[in-house]
Write a protein that binds this DNA or RNA. Sequence first.
DNA 1: GAGTACATGTAATTAGTTACATGATTGA
DNA 2: TCAATCATGTAACTAATTACATGTACTC
Lengths: 191, 191
Amino acid sequence: MRNLKYAILGLVNREPMTGYDIKKAFDSRGLTNFWHAEHSQIYPEMKKLVAEGLVEYETVIRGEKLETKLYRITPAGKKDFHDWLRDDVEIERTYKDVFRLRTFFNESLSQEEYLKLLRSQLMQHRQKRDMLRFYLETDFSTLPRFKTKQMGDYLVLDGAVRRETTYVEWLEHCIDVFENGTPGEPVDLIE
Amino acid sequence: MRNLKYAILGLVNREPMTGYDIKKAFDSRGLTNFWHAEHSQIYPEMKKLVAEGLVEYETVIRGEKLETKLYRITPAGKKDFHDWLRDDVEIERTYKDVFRLRTFFNESLSQEEYLKLLRSQLMQHRQKRDMLRFYLETDFSTLPRFKTKQMGDYLVLDGAVRRETTYVEWLEHCIDVFENGTPGEPVDLIE
DNA sequence: GAGTACATGTAATTAGTTACATGATTGA
DNA sequence: TCAATCATGTAACTAATTACATGTACTC
């Protein structure tokens, strides 16, 4: 599917960047919620993109002698990226999630053991949700303009807040079920 | 991380299964929302688990001569699985999502082109949400008992419904922004 | 008899992670 | 001068996908 390729092309399409800059972008507030790559995956991919003629680079000296490669997208790269971006695709059937996998098998834990996991996850997801909300409120108190990178940043951050908010609500529901059963629904407590 | 290993151990821990059964489980309503593997990944993993002494198998003949391998978990496998299940881990920083990646780069599309993608995604996610809701309502009209596999099935299905519902709401918000701007927030329309 | 589901494997490739390896620049 | 950051690469391994390959059983 070459998704990493297009994530990189999209970044380099915004502005010329070094491999290190791309790594930083993948670690940034915006992107890291829904895409990520290590530098060990990025540098070989840059080589490949150069070989494919989709990006080119210029060696830039920083300070006295530190050689850095500043990559910029080529017209062929722009076309390839744009074709990918326009492509209407089917939604993914699987969004892998290890904690949901654990939940699927919770029967093998005691209620207390599983509740402990739920509470830990809840704490972490609440913290993440609050952080994302803070970013959203501070950086996007007004709606950004169309055709700016800020609009993309805003939409995905808004999506991340919604995703975390819902994750928190789901964990709260799981805890509620395990602590109280469902209101009005007497639960058989086997143990 | 060996997550596939534990997904398989968890299934085989529920009841003895063939590799084919495991594949079917990964394709089933419940699991496929948050975990998946192809048979080409499953069969070699079964071999590995046998070599590690975590599962063992019995060759069973189906019909006249079709040899199938019925795997069952060993005590060592049970222990390993249980240790993994109890393990309290950090939440994932990245839940990869290609459509969010496209959204991040929407600036490179015209508003109409991006709206077309949004509407297609919305249609598909609404359909999935409705399907999941239907499963939830038909299979879990009453809360399942604790310490049953039904409880795990219920919780992850409930989580899947919430996840899809929120995805739909996010897409609707994106469409709303692109069609109308935000209510009360005049938007600069550059083009 | 045909088509679908059951059943198991390998090969080749792509994707991703962790570890190894090195060195320059900047700011406290 | 020390630590953090900038900067680039490779090696080894694990994870996952797509394609190749084969054969049986069941149901219409």
